[in-house]
Structures are given as C-alpha cells and as structure tokens.
Simulated assay, not measured.
Amino acid sequence: MQNVHALPSNENSENTKSASLTERLVDAIVAGTIRPGSKISEPELAKRYQVSRGPLREAIMRLEGLGLIERTPHVGATVVEFNVDRLIELYDVRESLEGMAARLAATHITEDQLSALEALIEQHSAYLNQSAATSKTYAAQEGDYDFHYQIIQASGNQKLISLLCDELYHLIRMYRHQSRTARTDPATALQEHRFILDAIRNRDPELAEMLMRRHISGSRKLIEKQLRPTA
C-alpha cells in the first residue's frame, strides 16, 4: 500500500542529504576541524563535502538551530567560539534540566532502559580499568553511549528531551572537547554515575535529582576553577 504521507523521492533524497551533511558538519565543529569563530563559506563547504547548495543551506540552518552557528550583522554566519561565561551558563541550565531528567527517569525508566544503563556503566568501568584509559576519553562518550543522554531519554518527557538532546547536547559536546583541561577525574565521575544509577534503580526521584545536580555542579565548579582567569 502506498504511503500517502511519503515525500516525493527527490524531496526525500534532499532531506536525507541535508540530515547526513548536518551530522558531518556537527562532528567537524565539535572536533574543531571547522574552527571556532571561523566564517561559514558556502562555496568552500560545498566543495569540501561535494554537495549542492540546497542541502548545504538547509544543514546550516539546522546548525543555527543547534546553537553551533550564529549570524552577526555585516559578518555573516560564523562558528560559535568557546567562551567560559557561556559555558558556565550552559552548565547552570544543565544542572536544573538534567536534575529534572534524573528525577523523572527514576519514575519512568523501563526495565530495558535500566538494563542498558547498567551495561553502559559496566562498559565504562571495564574501559577505565584498561591501562590506556584516560580522563579525556571517558568524558567524550556520546549518543546512546553517553550516560547523561540515556537518562535524559529515559525521562520520558519529550520537551525535556528536545531541549537537552537537540538544542543543548551538541553545544555541550563542543565545549567538552574545547575545555579538555577541565576534566573531572574519570574514576570519580564513574562513581558518581553509579550513585545516580542506584537512585534511579531504587526509584528514588528526589535522591536521583540531588545526585545529578551535585554531579553537574561539581563539573561546573571545576571548569570555573581551571578556566577562569585569576584575578
């Protein structure tokens, strides 16, 4: 039976190209391959990624929506630059919203989601026990492999998921990458994750929220201590 809601094949193809290109551009910005503060040149990017201007412009609009690109009068579109004050503001928002996500997850998480979180913690534990494990690699986990991301998804609140996973998630990734000197000790981070998981497993919303807020607040304080210029 034909899907009456399906896009025309050419339009569907363009959307697929744009979505794929968006992912590639996001990864390039997060990794610093497209440098912070650099001006977005459509001809240059079209040539680099071998795409037409249509999907590229759509991808750039999506990047603006994610907060990775900003437009300045008389300058045009540029990649956002690392800014400690912006990062602190972002962590303040994270503390509140992810605390809420942990509280909701303690109520709404499914057994499958709980099993996935437990498996993830064990995977991280095994990784950190390897001799080559370092702090920079533990904090770089992302997507379904990211502890925070999975808890947000388990909250079951679609608005919260949209705010954190669509609007803030990639900014957080970018700032994590650019502030590599400001790292919580990986063993400490893992232990704090275990405490949060225990609270969620025990269906204790208040404790889960408190532990998540404390966890993110600790990261914010570390960033301020290491990255703010001394007076």
Rank of each mutant, 00 (worst) to 15 (best):
Q2L: 09
Q2T: 15
A6G: 08
A6Y: 04
N10H: 14
N12D: 12
S18T: 06
S18V: 02
A19R: 14
S20C: 01
L25P: 02
D27E: 14
A28K: 07
A28G: 04
P36F: 03
S38E: 14
E42L: 11
Y49A: 03
G54A: 12
G54Y: 15
P55D: 07
R57S: 05
R62N: 13
G65W: 03
G65Y: 03
L66A: 06
P73E: 05
H74A: 08
V75H: 03
T78L: 01
E81V: 09
N83K: 02
V84N: 00
V84R: 01
D85M: 01
L90Y: 03
L90C: 06
D92T: 11
G99K: 03
M100V: 08
A102T: 04
L104A: 04
A106E: 02
H108L: 01
T110P: 02
L114F: 06
S115A: 12
A116E: 11
A116Q: 08
A119I: 02
E122W: 07
Y127S: 12
Y127W: 07
L128F: 05
S131E: 10
T134H: 09
T137K: 11
Y138A: 06
Y138R: 13
Y145I: 00
Y145L: 05
D146C: 15
Y149K: 00
I152P: 00
Q153M: 15
G156S: 08
N157Q: 09
N157E: 15
K159W: 14
C165K: 12
C165W: 15
E167V: 10
L168H: 09
R173Q: 13
Y175E: 07
R176K: 09
R176T: 01
D185C: 06
D185N: 15
P186V: 01
T188N: 04
A189V: 07
L190V: 08
Q191M: 07
E192V: 11
R194I: 08
D198V: 09
D198K: 14
D198F: 08
A199T: 06
A199I: 11
D204A: 13
L207K: 12
E209C: 04
E209I: 10
L211N: 01
L211T: 04
R214Y: 10
R214A: 14
R214G: 07
R214Q: 12
I216W: 03
I216N: 02
G218E: 08
R220N: 06
K221R: 15
K221F: 04
L222Y: 00
L222P: 02
K225W: 05
K225C: 05
R228E: 08
R228V: 05
P229C: 07
P229A: 13
T230I: 12
